[in-house]
């Protein structure tokens, strides 16, 4: 396989959990934990799937995604967005920013796995 996932998340325990789940499925997981330079990191690494938290220090997930979508289409860069703010307007915001999948925390491990897989296949 050798597909790469970049996980941008600031909560260490959640990074550990998602990394564990995806690694076990054979993904290569990169992590980054703040919003300031997230766009550059993504452009540099060009992962197959990007998992993006919303509440990040420095820059919000929506901002980061909007900037990325300036040059990368949903096809070029599938993005799974995770947020702990589960209100409907958050979902709207995410979709307007150009997200491929949107999930609220807490999530089921199997769901995350399924989502990441589906994004690559599509």
């Amino acid at each position: 396989m050798g597909k790469t996932v970049l996980l941008i998340e600031d909560e260490p325990n959640i990074i550990e959990a998602i990394s564990f789940i995806l690694s076990r499925d054979g993904w290569t997981v990169d992590t980054h934990s703040n919003g300031h330079d997230a766009v550059e990191v993504v452009m540099g690494r060009r992962p197959d799937v990007l998992i993006l938290d919303v509440m990040l220090p420095g820059k919000s997930g929506y901002e980061i995604l909007s900037e990325l979508r300036g040059s990368l289409s949903p096809k070029d860069l599938p993005v799974l967005m995770l947020t702990a703010r589960g209100q409907s307007k958050d979902r709207e915001l995410a979709e307007r920013s150009g997200v491929n999948r949107f999930m609220t925390k807490p999530f089921a491990n199997a769901e995350v796995l399924e989502a990441v897989r589906s994004l690559v296949v599509a």
Partner: peptide
């Protein structure tokens, strides 16, 4: 919501 969901995410995962 965010403050509650974050630890719960870790716990559930």
């Amino acid at each position: 919501s965010h403050e509650l969901r974050t630890p719960m995410t870790s716990i559930r995962a």
